[in-house]
Every structure is written in structure tokens, then in C-alpha cells.
Design a protein around this nucleic acid. Sequence first.
DNA 1: TTATTATGGATGCAATCGCATCTACACAGG
DNA 2: CCTGTGTAGATGCGATTGCATCCATAATAA
Lengths: 148, 148
Amino acid sequence: MAEPGKKALRSWRRLEKAHDLVSGRIEQALKAAGLPPLLWLRALEELERHGDRGPRPYELQTALDLEQPAVSRVLARMAAAGLIARRECADDRRGWTIATTPLGHEARVRAAEVYATALFAHFLAHLGEKQARSLDEILGDLLDSLRS
Amino acid sequence: MAEPGKKALRSWRRLEKAHDLVSGRIEQALKAAGLPPLLWLRALEELERHGDRGPRPYELQTALDLEQPAVSRVLARMAAAGLIARRECADDRRGWTIATTPLGHEARVRAAEVYATALFAHFLAHLGEKQARSLDEILGDLLDSLRS
DNA sequence: TTATTATGGATGCAATCGCATCTACACAGG
DNA sequence: CCTGTGTAGATGCGATTGCATCCATAATAA
């Protein structure tokens, strides 16, 4: 193939920079509001999605795309903070199921709000309708291609 | 303003994921080749750009977009690895100028090669010419808007 | 049953980062 | 010359991560 082209190379640098800037600002907004980091929000959202019987840690691993030790520690911290609770798992005594506490639910609601606001302020507000659609499509194709 | 729109929201998720996937793979390629991480490569490239009289640490800070302590430590590690050398700064005895060693130069060349190959394999090869141009433009506008 | 292997989770260790702080030198003003 | 303020860098601390390892239980097979 011919030279990658400067535009293409530059697009990667820009993607990196945009990611760093936006996620940095969102993280900062959460911290400023006295809320847990994005990762915890993701975990709480994933819990909520599971209905009555909370998921097992290993299920979160794929959903959050983390290494197993990372999951173990995040959950330990969240439990220590009172946002989740360990529930005995009847059919497998090695593991446990994750239950959201009322405190955890409240944190999730507030964090989601702050997150949405920050994401809008630091990303969505800077994109036109057409640009957003185009970006979504290009990145969707890219991800498909990367995973195949 | 109206609802952000699902496409727009999704585009952020996708940008995050694409960034994580691609940078993860590049980092992995460097490690597999026994080479230092991306950050070191960035630093070495920045040094090369400076010509004869190497830059001061604080100059790298803005170029690499790092916190000051991070710069201090990266440079300490790179010096320990023999890739750079501290040179006394005649006109300011608080600081020093950074000099690339032959070893550092060689590492930069090899890392740049691996980096380019990995970036192509894990990013550029998955983008069409038109998509790359569009991505570059959208992200360029976004960054301009974010920084203003 | 018992031995083997696989799997869910936890933990020890080294490396790294953000934040606050600290030291040393520079550059004023008096 | 001396004192106060600013700036270049380094360092201590707590938090987090990746990697390897370890423990306990499950599942399978002999």
C-alpha cells in the first residue's frame, strides 16, 4: 500500500488527544462533584442492567473490559465504600453475586447526571449533528474491522 | 437544546473503545519488541526535534502534555536506562538540558519503526482514504472547539 | 471415591500517576 | 547586601494497574 497519508496519521494523534482531553474533563467533573470515577459508574450501570439477581464478578470482567484482578479490586473498594454488597452465591461457593445498595443506587443516579452534563459540555456540544453521525459511523466500521 | 441523540452518545463510547483498543495494541507491540513505552518514544522524538542544544525538562512538559512530576520521573527512568544524559545548564544552575545518547537514538529509530508498523496494522489499514480525511477533519474541529 | 484439571477470586509485588510538598536557585526591591 | 517572591526540578505518599501467583471450590475421569 502507498504511504499512509498525513491526514490519516494526524487523525490518530487527534483521536488520542480528543480522548485524553474529554475523558480527563469528565473525570474531573465527577471528582469535583465528590463522586466516584467513571469506572465505578460503569460498574453501577452494569449492575442495574442485571435486574434482581446481581451479576458475578467474572461477568463484569467482560462487560467492563478489565483484567480479573482489576475487577476484584474495584469491587472491593466499592464494597468498602458501601455502594455494593457481597451476596452469597448458592450454587457456587467460590464466588458471590453483586448487589447494589441504596447508597450505590443514589450514587449511580447522581454520577450519571454529572456524567451526562459533562459529556455534553465537553464533547457533544462541540459536534454538529452531521459530524456526530459521521463520527459514529466511521468509528463503528473501524471497531468492526478491528475486532474481526 | 434537544436530546443529544443516540448516535452522538454512541460516538463517544466508540471513540473511547477505539482509543483503548488501538493504543493498547500499539503499546503491546512495543513491549513485545522489547522496546520502551510510547511515552518514551514521544520524548525521544521531541528531543530529536531540538537539534544541538537539548531541551529543558520544563519544555518537554508542555510538549508531552504531562504534569511536572511525571516529566521528572520519566526522564529519571530514561536516564537510568541510558537513553538520555543530563547535561549541565550553564545559564541556570537549577536545571539541566537533555541530551540523547547513541543508545537513545537507536532506540528511537527502532521504536518508531515498530510504532509505525503497529499503527498501520491496527488503525490505518482499517480506514479508507475518505474516512481518514473525514475523521481528521471532524476531530480537528472538535479539538479547536475544545481548546477555545 | 480419589486424582486431575479447570475456574472464580484474591493477593503480593513492582511500576506508574496525581497531588502536595520541598529544595535550590533566580530575580526583583529595598 | 539582604529579603521576599517566583520558578525548575525532585521526592514522599496514597491510589491504581498489570502480572504472576495462590487458594478454594467445581467439574471430570479413572
